[in-house]
Structure formats: structure tokens, C-alpha cells
Design a protein around this nucleic acid. Structure first.
Lengths: 327, 327
DNA sequence: CGGCACGCGACACATATGTGACGATGTTAG
DNA sequence: CTAACATCGTCACATATGTGTCGCGTGCCG
């Protein structure tokens, strides 16, 4: 739990370049994962301590330097996937097992989403991204590209306080993984007044970036819920009062700053006039909208997003999928 | 070491469908590799024994059900790669660390080659493949595709005796991984007489498959050496007498059944009139020739292949690369 | 009907792995 | 120059993992 104004070191994994020589890391990973050598043997071979090898392997795993993909035509929850597709008329659904510990589903859903994006973003395609822990995890699980001339467009404004997951960080990680040019919305996520928001949206840098939205090839969206476990609430991105009033207005969460009720309709609330974000119709013009969101608390907003025609492909976890199908 | 005529059960990993439920395997892999749970915890969660979890994980690793890729722009041996490109005018070189134990480099080089092919074979592209342990390993490390209408063309004849690595097995594995149609050369690798070979090559099924070679998008070639460790010799694919006479004729190995001397020239030898294989000029017409071969004993034939213009992209191991560059 | 091979669960145990404590060795700011 | 600090190697130890052995059912074949 964070206090307002608390400064947080943006301790993002940093893609681990620099922690140790990238070449060394690659070599260790090779011997360990590909060749199946023991850490001890690798340490002796390279004349470093086993502990160091262990450390570097840990870094490599965490930072997404090594990527583990589970091939196999039928995923682990493939009946649920079929059920989701059938129930909601989706193009595709990807369901991953929920974490065994009552843990956070976001890293896992994000990982799956990252893999999906890697496989479906065309070379030199333009990718729009939302923000959050899920997107962050997705960024770490993108297959690295190089020289393919991709573009990454951030679909929301930034946050001044560097919380653990920051839109700009997310976008930068994505762009780095894809070797892409990155386009940021150089404005806060929430403006302080409606005139200010209108001015920002009309301003050249913001306008030009938002104008790219209808030209995107794929957008990776996340769903922000307004449950008691809502992360923005926890991180202080929105105040408790705002949270309460949004709920009172019938909102179950938001997609790219568009607050929706359970039926997928945009709600009426003062905050909606302060958000700097792409228009709904522009988003709907993107040929492939991938929504990555997991955990029971996201069920309502996921359903709303689907009803709002903001989800062609859903990436979620087993728990949420079950509730979506049954409920 | 195999005795002539010994029957070998073709105990290929079989892509592990069937060993256990694929969905179970996927789930276990997910919890273990992605979520980082302990085998014990997974066993309890799924109500099976830890041993079983352990087993399934082992199967999954070996069969390529899980794939581990090392991302990172600079590979572990990236100076050697640059040196190879510069020295031999290659389009690209991929060098992987040699196995630490005096072990076989083929599985490792093959793994890297498989990854390369996955990344470079166009959707609905046609892939030509050679055969051998290296290609076998490559097949296990292809990213699975589905419904992309790829084609796999085997670039050599078959072997009646099912040795550990058999051209038809190789091709079948590749085709399965890519969900591709597979085209086999329905003829032995070596015909018993030249008239028979000519008749075979002129026959419809063989001719039509060989005619596909100039239309390939990419060919994954392997190099067969004639050193004392030569695998075909060990497996009895060629007799010791033939081996000796090929060496006497100046051959250092073969690429797709084309025996080359150290300079990359085709040699003169009776065997060359018995091989059922694509013509050199047809091979050279393939826009991308990837040669996957590692181990010191392959250095000579690799060099020969490059000189014969049969290698645009080289995938090899550190030991071989060093000798290639220095020697 | 009687083996008999096979697979699987229950242990058991040798390694391998992750992590903490502690001291030596630089490294930088004052 | 020196002291605070970060980094790294050594040791140690709790877990986790891989791989045996044993004994029990089950289904197959003679």
C-alpha cells in the first residue's frame, strides 16, 4: 500500500542488459536451458561461482531474456476457450490456468498475451497498447524483433508519479522489445479540468498521436476494474472518492479510460470529461482488438468490454473464463 | 554402435501427444515454467504424484513440447558470427556455444537452426530439408504453426533400415510441426545401379517432387562428413569400403548427396551416379540456403559447402566456427 | 486359470538449486 | 586519505529435483 507522494524507485527489470554482460548471460542460458548442464558445471567451465550463475539465470528468467513457450495445438483449457468463443462470438479466446497460489493473474495472462501479440503483429505493423501490470508482463514476453520498422502507440496519458506500472514504462518496454518507434501521449492520463483536457487533445503532439489510432494494425488492451482490489485505487492513481463516485455512477471498470457499465455502455460522470484518450469509435476501427485481463475481479469489465465491441480476442485466466461462461 | 541388420525401434519422441493427455502436459508446464510453482505443489494441486509431474515435465522438455528461446539481440558468440560473415561473405551466421561435455553438437546446432527456420520461413512457404541428427533436432525446435499451408520437401531418398535418424522420420516431424503437406522422394537414397537410378529419377512421383526444388522458399541443409566419426558410417548407411574410396577420391563429405572435395568441387566417384537427389543447380536456385552443421569433424565439409555456393546462412557451433575463421 | 509384463503409487536418497550470513575487495564521495 | 558503501567470493543449509527400488493392482496371453 502506498502513501500519497511516496517516491518509488522504478525498479523495472530493465531487460537485464547491463546487469551482466549480455553475452555471458546468453552463454549461461544456453548451457543451462538448451544443453541441460548443471549450474555447478557451468560455473566451473566459465570460471565463476555457482552463485553467480544462479543469479544470472534468475535475472534471465525474470527479465524475459529467456522465453519459455508451450507449444502444442490444444492449450490446457481448450474447452473453456471454445465455450468463450461460442458464447460471446469472439474471434479467439486464450485461457491460461489460474495461478495456484491465490496469486496475481496478471503476469500470467500478460505472458500469454505477449506471445499472442508476437505471433500476430505483422512485420512493420503498428501496435496500440494500454497500460497496467498485465501489459507490463506482456512486454516482457514479446519475442524480440529487429529492424522490422514496427510502431508502438500508447493509448493513454501518463502518470507523473512513477508507480510500479507506468504507462510510459510499459510503452518503452514494448517498443524496445520490438525495436519499434514509440509514440507517447504527452499529456496526463487525467487532466485537471475540462478546458485543459480539450486544449491538450487539440494540441499538436497529442492530436497527432491520437490520430494514429485508426491506422493501428492491432491493439493490446487491458481492463481496469473498480473492485476493492482495483490497482489504480491501491496505487493512488484515482482517489477513493472518485472510485466511489464512479461505482455509484454504475461503472464496472474502464478500457482505455472509457468507463463502462455492466452492459458496456459508457457512463455519465465528471471524470469522463477529463480523460485524455482515443475516441471509442477510433478504437473500434482497429482491425484486431486483443483484450488481456484475468482474475475474478475483472469479470464484469471484461463482459462490458465485449458488449462494447472492444474485444475481438480475449486473453484471460481460467477463473475469469469460468465465470464469464457460466454467469 | 550398431551391427548391420540390427533392428532399431524408432523410438522418436513422437511429439509426446499420447504419452499423457496433452492438456495435462500443457497445464503442468504452465504451472511449472510460467508460474514457477514447485513440482510438489503442482502434484498436490492436480492430485497426482510428484514423480508423475517430474516425468511429464521431462517428456515435455525432450519432445519439444516446451520451447525455450534465448532472446537478446547479441548472441553468446557474436564476434565469431561477425567474423564468419566477413570471412566467407555469408548473409548471416549463427554460432552457438559448443557442448561442454565432449558431447554431440548436433542437437544444439539443430535447435538453433530450428529456431531460425521458424522465424524465417514465410507463411505458406515451401521448405526443403536434408536429413540427419541435426535436422532431427531442428524439427523438434520449430515453433508450431497451424493452417498456414506450408509445404515440406525432402531433398533426398529414404533408407529402408530404420536408423535412429531416418530421412522420412525427419520430414514427417518437420511437416507435423508446421502442419504442412509433406513431399517425399519415394526412392532409396542410393540406387543399386545407374540405370535404376535414372529410371527412378525419370519416374513420375520422384520427378514431380524433385521438380519442386527450384520453387522452394528456403532449404535447411545439413553436412555429412567423411571423418572417422561419420554417422552414416557408424550407422552402416555406407560401407567402410565406400567410405574409404570416397575419401580416396578426395571427398570431405556431402551436401544432399553431392560429394565435395575441400574446394567445394563435386568429385568423380561411382557412387555419385547412384544417388537420388536434386541437382546442384536446382538447389542453388533456392533463395535461402541454411546450412546447419557443427562439430570439428564438419569443418572441412562446411567450408566446401560454402565454396560450392550452397550456404547463405550458416548455423554452427563455436568450435567449428573458430576453426573455420582461423584455419 | 496362472503367470507375467506393465504401469503406477509410495517411499528413499543422491544431487542440484536457491538463499542467507559473513568477510574480503574494490570504489566513490567527502 | 579514509570511511561508507556496494560488489563479489566462500561457506553453509534448507528445499527442490531426478532417479532409483519395492510392492501392488490390472490387463493380457498362454
Amino acid at each position: 500500500m502506498l502513501k500519497a507522494g511516496q517516491r518509488i524507485k522504478t525498479s523495472l527489470p530493465d531487460v537485464a542488459e547491463g546487469t551482466a554482460d549480455a553475452a555471458l548471460m546468453a552463454r549461461i542460458c544456453w548451457h543451462y536451458f538448451k544443453e541441460g548442464q548443471t549450474q555447478e558445471a557451468i560455473a566451473q567451465h566459465l570460471k565463476i561461482t555457482r552463485k553467480r550463475v544462479n543469479q544470472i539465470l534468475g535475472d534471465a528468467r525474470q527479465s524475459g531474456f529467456v522465453q519459455i513457450t508451450i507449444t502444442g495445438s490444444t492449450g490446457p483449457c481448450h474447452e473453456l476457450e471454445a465455450a468463450l468463443v461460442a458464447t460471446f462470438g469472439l474471434r479467439q479466446a486464450i485461457v491460461v490456468p489460474s495461478p495456484m497460489a491465490g496469486d496475481d493473474a496478471r503476469p500470467l495472462v500478460g505472458a500469454a498475451a505477449g506471445q499472442y501479440v508476437s505471433e500476430h503483429l505483422p512485420p512493420s505493423g503498428a501496435l496500440g497498447i494500454s497500460w497496467g501490470g498485465t501489459i507490463n508482463a506482456a512486454a516482457q514476453n514479446l519475442a524480440r524483433r529487429k529492424g522490422m520498422d514496427n510502431r508502438v502507440v500508447l493509448l493513454c496519458g501518463g502518470l507523473a508519479e512513477s508507480t510500479l506500472v507506468n504507462p510510459y514504462d510499459n510503452a518503452a518496454m514494448m517498443a524496445r522489445a520490438l525495436d519499434a518507434t514509440c509514440y507517447y501521449v504527452t499529456a496526463p492520463m487525467f487532466a485537471e479540468s475540462q478546458p485543459l483536457r480539450d486544449a491538450l487533445i487539440a494540441s499538436e503532439p497529442v492530436k497527432s498521436v491520437l490520430a494514429m489510432v485508426p491506422t493501428l494494425d492491432l491493439a493490446l488492451l487491458s481492463a481496469i476494474d473498480l473492485s476493492k482490489q482495483s490497482k489504480p485505487l491501491e496505487y493512488g492513481v484515482i482517489s477513493r472518492a472518485t472510485w466511489q463516485s464512479l461505482r455509484d455512477a454504475g461503472a464496472v471498470g474502464d478500457i482505455c479510460g472509457h468507463y463502462l457499465d455492466a452492459e458496456g455502455r459508457t457512463i455519465d460522470h465528471p471524470l469522463t470529461c477529463l480523460v485524455v484518450n482515443p475516441k471509442l469509435d477510433d478504437l473500434r476501427r482497429v482491425p484486431e482488438l486483443v483484450l488481456a485481463a484475468g482474475g475474478r475481479q475483472k469479470v464484469a469489465i471484461i463482459r462490458a468490454a465485449i458488449r462494447a465491441r472492444l474485444c475481438h480476442v480475449l486473453v484471460t485466466d481460467e477463473d475469469a473464463a469460468k465465470e464469464l461462461v457460466q454467469g
